[in-house]
Design a binder for these strands. Sequence first.
DNA 1: GCCCCCACTTAACATTTGTTGGATTTGCCC
DNA 2: GGGCAAATCCAACAAATGTTAAGTGGGGGC
Lengths: 259, 259
Amino acid sequence: MLFAPHALSRVGESSAVTSDMIWAPLFQRLKTTTGADDRDLQALAALPFTLRNFRENQTVLRDGEQPSECCLIADGFCVRSKTIADGRRQILSIHIPGDLPSLQNLHFATVDHDLIALSDCTLAFIAHKALNELIRQRPGVGDMFWRDTLVDAAVSREWIVNVGQRSTYNRLAHLIVELRERLRLIGRVIDNTFEIPLTQEQFGEAMGVTSVHTNRILRELRIDGVLELQRGTVRILNEHKLQELAQFDGRYLHLSPSS
Amino acid sequence: MLFAPHALSRVGESSAVTSDMIWAPLFQRLKTTTGADDRDLQALAALPFTLRNFRENQTVLRDGEQPSECCLIADGFCVRSKTIADGRRQILSIHIPGDLPSLQNLHFATVDHDLIALSDCTLAFIAHKALNELIRQRPGVGDMFWRDTLVDAAVSREWIVNVGQRSTYNRLAHLIVELRERLRLIGRVIDNTFEIPLTQEQFGEAMGVTSVHTNRILRELRIDGVLELQRGTVRILNEHKLQELAQFDGRYLHLSPSS
DNA sequence: GCCCCCACTTAACATTTGTTGGATTTGCCC
DNA sequence: GGGCAAATCCAACAAATGTTAAGTGGGGGC
């Protein structure tokens, strides 16, 4: 069976997975960020894809692989990461439903990092060949995707700033706010509460610090009444303080077509 | 006068700046990395451009600006950087002749970081409009440029790993090796010696550490006989040790068309 | 319901990195 | 050649972060 029950129930409540459910978060994002042309989206939605489910911690793409398809996260969370010689691991980006985390392999033969499922995930795989043909037919689709990879790059640059210059305390605040803004775009934020299914160790790997230190900083944020994190669920306690710490300027997300 | 003498002498020894000299480093890079089509390059070289010179430390593009042209570094070095609220600055990438550091603004209206000349620089500015028209006529040009922005993104991801996980000692070694590989591509490495005109403070801003600490690490590298850095000139003293420290895996530079 | 594994939590101590302040060197202008 | 400004260099001390080693707690499998 293609769909394991656990994944099905996360994509939607019914047992039938429609094409709509697969594309919805991507389209929702593209419409607000790029003012996407409806015919381009319809053409996209007509592309053939294969659904595959991944379990928590399962590797989706391994460093060095040469994929012939690119993947769309229909449901669940993934991270890009790199592991260096001494075994230390850095998380490079966190991906949410609607993301296309391997779009760069339309142009690169080889994957230069790992892509790992953080939670149980449903991914739609679309052949590079089909995508390239569509892009040739409809340059607007290519523009949308090129832009999408550029936003991805802009997020990476801000990630460098975060790791390089902000105190761990502020760094975590910034990371949380960025993820909240991206989750809000796809309707995953309710009442200052949202899910980011990372363990403390993984938050540490995203910030370039150890799990012990991550725990210290989380305790401080909790004691200071800024936010709480429990088993992957974030609850904002003091929005004002959070903003002050994060100093978040969302322009780098390029959320509007005219930015 | 468009050309200040100092800049002219850096582009070439003669006093006439030909279109060839402007495009040479970019074409040299594109030929080895993307196996570029000669007709695409010819079409590119036929585009109108404006040359502008910048002095050391002069801002080329400021965070928030809305440029109508993108720039090609014909000669000199630039950096992308972001400054956060408390004044700390992070260098995001280092750009060398042949780089197109603002290509992302073909798709973004607004620049989301600063672009600053490290040394006296000669930049060629090409109108977005002309470039977009060429890309519509010759999709191969668009593919080349899309790929170029993807390599840029891959470099940013490795930069995150560098800042997040490597010790400052290894981090500096990695940074040096990456720059050497990129400079080699455009023929700027001679006898284990090459120029990277950053001050120690700027190396610090690239690595996310202070200038004092950068100085400590440079002294260690010098004492350990790994490399020397004097006024922007790097000399490798022990290639083997350097490799061991940097643990450099250049796949992320995607230097071959089939990678 | 029990057990086991894994995430979380904490403390003590070691190491790295930042801060401050000052001395020295270098490049450049006059 | 003198003098200024910037870059480099360095040491002493402070703060942030890593390491190690233990507990604690909760959820899933049996």
